[in-house]
């Protein structure tokens, strides 16, 4: 192994360790809120309202929404971890520590993305454990479940990175989560099947990338989906690749970091 590669592996480990340390240090802001929010969803939507709805694709309503709610937590947390961490580093100028060091832009990007994935997966585990107090869950296909959750997490971590690169103030890092991610997640089949929609809205819904992610994950857990799984996974991999290339180019150019 070349010295350069060894050095970058240590740097990658350092960035991931630092990111994990950050979100664990501020756990009341990072890990606790999604746990409380999801418990409320389970109680209100799953137990109280869900008991009046009946079965969905052969599962109780609670079982049906659990994969979507896990996915919702993963999306929000992967995104917000990277956007807040990278923007804070820009804001405090501590990003300069990385920019002046001999770490390759790929290592920097992968480090931040892995930090986002770690938090996404950590929250997913917490939400899944909490869901077991409300319903039984069995994993239909572990490989698909893991591929989908990691890919989704990577896509939104990269999205968060992109947002942080262009953000100039703290308002700029809350616009996308509030006005884009939340509506797309609620309209992404977390609480309903698109089979319940008319043809027009069903077609429109297919343009929502989160619908594909939620359904692919639901397939991994329950074995049911409204969309073709291979298309969903293909789309996720393609999106990850495109976002990666865009983000790494921005890092190389030093956009928002170099003058």
């Amino acid at each position: 192994m070349s010295t350069e590669l060894k050095s970058n592996l240590v740097a990658l480990q350092t960035i991931v360790y630092r990111e994990a340390r950050r979100f664990l240090r501020i756990w009341p802001q990072t890990l606790l809120p999604p746990a409380i929010t999801m418990v409320l969803y389970f109680v209100i939507f799953g137990n109280l309202i869900g008991s009046q709805i009946g079965d969905m694709h052969g599962f109780t309503y609670m079982q049906y929404i659990v994969p979507g709610l896990i996915m919702m937590s993963v999306i929000t947390n992967s995104y917000s971890n990277v956007v807040s961490s990278f923007f804070s580093a820009k804001f405090q100028h501590s990003i300069e520590e990385l920019m002046v060091s001999p770490v390759s832009p790929h290592t920097i990007l992968i480090g931040f993305v892995m930090g986002g994935i770690l938090r996404g997966l950590g929250v997913a585990v917490i939400v899944t454990l909490l869901s077991l107090f409300f319903t039984d869950l069995q994993v239909h296909n572990l490989t698909i479940t893991m591929v989908v959750i990691v890919c989704t997490s990577a896509v939104f971590a990269l999205g968060g990175f992109l947002n942080a690169v262009f953000a100039r103030n703290f308002d700029d890092i809350s616009i996308i989560p509030s006005f884009v991610l939340t509506p797309l997640t609620y309209l992404g089949g977390v609480f309903y099947s698109i089979d319940m929609l008319g043809p027009f809205w069903k077609t429109i819904s297919l343009a929502n990338p989160i619908l594909h992610m939620v359904n692919a994950f639901r397939y991994g857990i329950l074995g049911v989906s409204d969309i073709d799984i291979s298309v969903a996974i293909g789309l996720m991999l393609l999106t990850t690749l495109i976002l990666y290339v865009v983000c790494v180019r921005l890092l190389i150019s030093g956009r928002g970091m170099r003058t």
Partner: peptide, 19 residues
């Protein structure tokens, strides 16, 4: 430097960036 990190962590993190 990151204002929320400890002095020691700032140093070890910086060292990590240099492999």
């Amino acid at each position: 430097f990151n204002q929320f990190e400890t002095a020691q962590n700032i140093l070890t993190t910086q060292a990590g960036y240099y492999g």
